[in-house]
Amino acid sequence: MSRTLRWWVLGAGLAGVGLAFLLAVVDLPSFGSVLHPSRDLAVPAAVQHGTANVVASVTFDQRGLDTLVEETILFGSVVAVAALLRPAEDERLQRERGSRPPLEATRLFGYLLLPLTLVVGLDLVAHGHVTPGGGFQGGIMLATGLHLLYVAGRYRSLEELRPLPLFETAEAVGTAAFVAMGFAGLAVAGSFLANFLPFGAFGQLLSAGTVPLLNVAVGIAVGSGGVVLLAQFFRQVFLVTEDADEHVDEKGAARP
């Protein structure tokens, strides 16, 4: 493909996207107006299923399949990062490489926020169907919170608290649990991811049917996925290339 042709293809693509965007935006109700068609449909549907957090109702009940696909994208991304950042043949781990201990203030900050972040993360997962939050927000907060140990200068403790094979399994189990809930809905109520459990009392911990269970499944999957993802980056920092003269590649020349 010649350079000019490529520019034409790009131009046609941009014009098409621009036109579609314009057509989509022109019909939108104006910002802050009373007219709100999606809200008028989503809120009664959420209340009907005993879900106080309408956003959770949309993501896990009304549009559960979209969330499952998102979850799968995240899963695929973590697998891709793990594949790309795996240690090369001539790399080995070297711990505590030239790292200075953090400032006392930073360390204190890490220790103070660690329990707080973990509790908030658990709360977000557990109450995702009642108050803002949910499996994704809570899970990713738990994964990040654990890494405050690194901020506090305790990378070794972090490694001990983080058995990677366990988290890798948990990520897969969480994702599989979401799919299993979908098939359970299909078997019991006749449609994939149908909300087939009792809706309970509005605003209570036990309400909204399958939504809290899906939140827990997503929380496990996203939390473990986040830990596995960050672990790949941390391992890269502690990986060093072995001395070049120990290795000779297939052509017989020493590596640079």
Binding site: N53, V55, A56, L124, P132, G133, G134, F136, Q137, I140, M141, T144
Partner: peptide, 11 residues
């Protein structure tokens, strides 16, 4: 949009 805000603050 507190749900989005929570995702945004962590990510």
């Amino acid at each position: 949009a507190p749900d989005v805000a929570l995702s945004q603050v962590v990510v």
